[in-house]
Design a protein around this nucleic acid. Structure first.
Length: 571
RNA sequence: GCCCUCGUAGUUCAAUGGAUAGAACGCGAGAUUGCGGAUCUCGUAAUUCAGGUUCGAAUCCUGACGAGGGCACCA
């Protein structure tokens, strides 16, 4: 069983003991919380709300409860010490026993440490990444890819079955604009050389020159596409093929994969059918030649399903895609990992699906993320040519890592290059997950490229260092658990290890992988500080300390894996 | 104009309504001979403003100021 259950049991047992003084177990359980510092105990009971019913001050009540628990014989097996501090009761675990349990749990559950079964039997779809074809893979979709991948791993660790869908932006007027640019200024030879960069430049040029005529012509191209015009569709196929080559290269670098790759183009017909069905049901109406759903009542503005020239919109296509996915996969939950700028779109879409009578629409969730902003604080945009290409970032990070390896005497053989790739990946992923999911991130290449301090490479260094300490000792994991009364520094690590399962659960409940990223960093810092102060090799506590470091490296490896980072045995 | 986010050290980010607001970068001072210095230790410095709710507010509510995003033929 998971460590989560075990930790809950300790909470539960303590809550039951405390409740004997005259409270309900639920009441106590709901307010038990970890103190801000380990020096203040392992778990604390704030007595502020409790005092009211007994007309006692929190301070007096805390003292009463502390005395009560101290004198309970059953409590002696669980806690070493109980203290009343202000309005808090601070409980100090029996460290030897608790540590033994935590370490045993880490090794027993191996790669499953921290996992739980809260999602057992449930199927969740995560729509993620979803780049637009004919454009470079930009930093915006990087967030969706990284967060989506991390969420998929976190959901699995919580017992869910996960289906990852990459839903390509491969249809729409933007594509008409591209065709316009290509027909106006493009040629085949240039296209074949560096297809994506070339297409993106054409797209930017079109947008720079944009006027009503170009807009109209571009929409005309989308109409041709929807009508099945062979020449235009041939170009579209070519562009899509080129795009997928670049995307797959990036997914390989990031270590990301999908269960299904599909795209908006697959729903152009069904989207229109649904629009007309909605028109018949009077959920939608005609307005200025277009088919729209008026959602002003719910404060969601007007949603457009079909444009006045008869072409589909992404709203109608997305509705069609959701309905098809429900039929096909019978999911319990579907997550759209898409930027916050599309909040209104998803609100409209969910509202329309509910109006259509689909009960499962309440199981759809837009897990939005903040945007990358430019250094001036403004939005980055492909159209204005201010977007940042993923490959540019990668090249910067990778060459920095290669240089670091060189200066450390690496010969850059095949293994070294593989290591450089993993370190670069860690740098990019951690730089992204370091922020809370919904915060905007100011784009700063220097901080992504950094290898010291609060960075991915630091995490990997900490792991490699722990492995190195063990390998110098020729350490192998003992068959029997090593038990000891932990010293303060040792216990700090153990206590941190015990928090992992709560982080795994919380990350899923809040759909926020940054919780795991932060946990990993706190754990890594704990170790760095530990090995500077406490020598392992040759110490009288060598056996116990190496055992703890073994557990540390296990948990950090699992934790990093949850956010898509592979560890390296040396740096 | 309307709707949604968000204002924390010089900078980039933390903080289930709880105890002394925590890191990193920067800046300043240290750690040779002991398991890897991509490290560690110490110092420096912050809750935009004004009210309110609460035993307790960076966090919840109201207002002001400031920033970002969105609001019918882009996605």
């Amino acid at each position: 069983m998971s460590n989560f259950a075990k930790e809950s049991n300790i909470r539960m047992e303590l809550a039951q003991l405390i409740a004997r003084i005259g409270f309900s177990v639920e009441e106590i359980l709901s307010i038990l919380e970890p103190p801000p510092s380990i020096d203040m105990g392992d778990i604390a009971l704030p007595c502020f709300g409790l005092g009211k019913t007994r007309s006692k001050t929190p301070t007096a009540l805390a003292k009463e409860i502390a005395d009560f628990v101290t004198n309970l014989s059953e409590a002696k097996a669980l806690v070493d010490r109980v203290e009343a501090v202000g309005g808090y009761v601070n409980l100090y675990f029996n460290k030897e026993k608790f540590s033994e349990q935590v370490l045993a749990d880490v090794f027993r559950s191996d790669n499953r440490y921290g996992s739980n079964e809260s999602g057992k039997g449930k199927k969740v779809i995560i729509e993620m990444s979803s780049p637009n074809i004919a454009k470079s893979f930009g930093i915006g979709h990087l967030r969706s890819t990284i967060i989506g991948e991390a969420l998929s791993r976190i959901y699995r660790a919580n017992g869910f079955q996960v289906i990852k869908i990459n839903y390509l932006g491969d249809w729409g007027t933007q594509f008409g604009k591209l065709i316009y640019g290509f027909k106006e200024w493009g040629n085949d030879t240039e296209l074949a050389k560096k297809p994506i960069d070339y297409l993106q430049d054409l797209y930017i040029k079109t947008n720079l020159e944009i006027n009503e005529e170009i807009e109209a012509t571009s929409r005309g191209y989308l109409k041709l596409m929807e009508e099945g015009d062979e020449e235009v569709l041939k170009l579209w196929h070519r562009v899509k093929k080129y795009s997928l080559v670049e995307f797959n290269r990036i997914y390989d670098l990031l270590g990301v994969s999908f269960d299904i790759t599909t795209g908006e183009s697959e729903y152009k017909e069904s989207g229109k059918e649904i629009a007309h069905e909605l028109l018949k049901n009077r959920i939608a109406k005609e307005s200025e030649g277009a088919i729209v759903v008026d959602l002003e009542d719910s404060g969601n503005s007007v949603g457009m399903l079909i444009k006045s020239d008869g072409t589909s919109t992404y709203l109608s296509r997305d509705i069609a895609a959701a309905i098809k996915r429900n039929n096909e996969y019978e999911f319990d939950e579907m997550i759209y990992e898409v930027g916050s700028e599309q909040e209104l779109h998803f609100q409209q879409m969910f509202t329309i699906l509910k109006k259509m009578g689909y009960e499962w629409a309440s199981h759809l969730k837009h897990v939005s993320h903040g945007l990358y902003l430019g250094k001036d604080g403004g939005k980055l945009s492909t159209r204005q040519g201010t977007s940042i290409k993923m490959m540019d970032i990668w090249d910067h990070v990778y060459s920095k890592i290669i240089n670091e390896l060189k200066t450390r005497g690496s010969v850059l053989d095949k293994n070294d290059l593989e290591r450089a790739k993993k370190i670069s990946r860690a740098a990019i992923i951690y730089a992204d997950l370091n922020s809370h999911r919904e915060s905007n991130i100011k784009y700063d290449l220097d901080s992504i490229v950094a290898t010291d301090g609060n960075t991915g490479p630091y995490l990997l260094y900490s792991y490699a260092r722990s492995r190195s300490i063990l390998s110098v000792l020729n350490y192998t994991r003992p068959q029997k658990p090593v038990v000891a009364k932990p010293e303060h520094e040792e216990y700090q690590i153990i206590s941190r290890l015990s928090e992992f399962s709560r982080a795994v659960l919380k990350a899923r409940v809040e759909d926020d992988p940054s919780i795991i990223a932060k946990y990993s960093m706190n754990l890594a810092r704990e170790l760095s500080s530990f090995y500077e102060r406490c020598r392992v090799k040759g110490s009288s506590r060598e056996k116990y300390r190496s055992y703890i470091i073994d557990a540390y490296s296990c948990v950090l490896r699992i934790s990093l894996n949850l956010i898509g980072i592979d560890v390296v045995e040396r740096m």
